[in-house]
């Protein structure tokens, strides 16, 4: 089961896809989210998200500004004021 990852900005839904893992720059430290992560909310400091499409693949980085991350059973949602 892959992790469902969504990246949303006020202007549009930037990403909505299934990935293996996302490393989020949380305001109190980076954290990686895999499938089945416990429910979690955190503010995100300005920095780069690392998106791993599959295990062992090279990460794709997306810069985000003014972000917030929410992990639920449905997956990971990152709200950002600006992305990319």
């Amino acid at each position: 089961m892959p992790l469902h990852f969504e990246l949303v900005t006020p202007e549009k839904l930037v990403r909505s896809e299934d990935v293996y893992m996302v490393v989020v720059p949380g305001s109190e430290g980076d954290f990686g989210v895999l499938e089945g992560h416990a429910p979690f909310m955190s503010t995100v400091r300005d920095g780069a998200l690392q998106v791993f499409a599959s295990a062992g693949a090279a990460p794709e980085t997306i810069d985000v500004v003014g972000g917030f991350a929410e992990v639920t059973e449905q997956g990971l949602t990152v709200l950002a004021e600006r992305a990319g």
Partner: peptide, 11 residues
């Protein structure tokens, strides 16, 4: 069971 980082009020 949701965990907050930092706490709810700060978020």
């Amino acid at each position: 069971a949701v965990e907050y980082e930092p706490d709810e009020a700060t978020i």
